[in-house]
Design a binder for these strands. Structure first.
Lengths: 137, 137
DNA sequence: CCTATGTCAGTCGGACTGATATGT
DNA sequence: CACATATCAGTCGGACTGACATAG
């Protein structure tokens, strides 16, 4: 079987598993991803988040609207720039993300069962390198 | 960065690259995947193909309708079963698939640049194992 | 002017659920 | 009757393109 196909199948299976793992929190996958990005790097704007997630600003805006409706983020106008609105995780956002992270970490642990530390590191490196190679085209 | 995220990003980038590589043939990714499955195992029914591709029969039916419209497959009623319709690649389907396969193989080669044979084999094994682990849940 | 940002609006393809008819 | 298959029809969420106003 072609490697491309195997990667697509893994991603498909993994996405479904993560969605199931975070569904109890009421989060969609795109929302969880966005919260994760925002936790790692606070005070990003909609446009910046869109670039990080490789989607259009319009798509990211929809995700953020949902997160704000659930009061998981706050939107605060930039102090120096009149147009930019910066996002922050709310206290509820932080705790909900932490809960989801625990579930996802357990899921990843199950996914990597049977692989020793060297194999896990090699997998991470190979995935990163493959992505770089494709993006370099 | 979390491994789940890296895998999702690789799949996203890879899908876009494959779509671009086969676009000249007028094929969509789902159509290319279906032709590949059918080349490896001819005479499958719609329901069988849907299970292989992990989609509903209705979704697969749409893909097959497109392939038939382009005369890349032929649909022939089963000799013994009055309801089942079996799919075959047409001569055009075979040649178009071969062309796409060459492009995709070149793409995969570029993706794996810098990884030695052992690392490539390890990647394949790790991806397969991770998928099995998730599906076993 | 040119660029970046935020956002309203419409579109589009993909996969889904529901319903129905038919063959074993 | 139960079950699998094919297929028509509608729905739904996600991402897209287009358009526009505004800030720098």
């Amino acid at each position: 079987m072609r490697l491309s196909y195997a990667i697509g199948r893994l991603d498909h299976t993994l996405s479904q598993a993560i969605e199931a793992a975070i569904a109890a929190s009421g989060l969609k996958l795109a929302q969880y991803t966005t919260l994760s990005i925002l936790a790692a790097q606070p005070s990003l704007s909609n446009a910046q988040l869109a670039r990080r997630a490789f989607v259009r600003p319009q798509s990211m805006n929809q995700v953020l609207a949902g997160l704000e409706r659930q009061e998981l983020i706050t939107r605060r106008p930039d102090a120096e720039h009149g147009r930019i609105i910066r996002m922050e995780l709310s206290p509820r956002g932080h705790t909900l993300l932490a809960t989801c992270d625990r579930h996802v970490e357990a899921l990843e642990a199950a996914m990597l069962d049977g692989l020793d530390p060297e194999e896990r590191a090699a997998l991470s490196r190979a995935v990163a390198r493959a992505t770089e190679n494709l993006r370099a085209r």
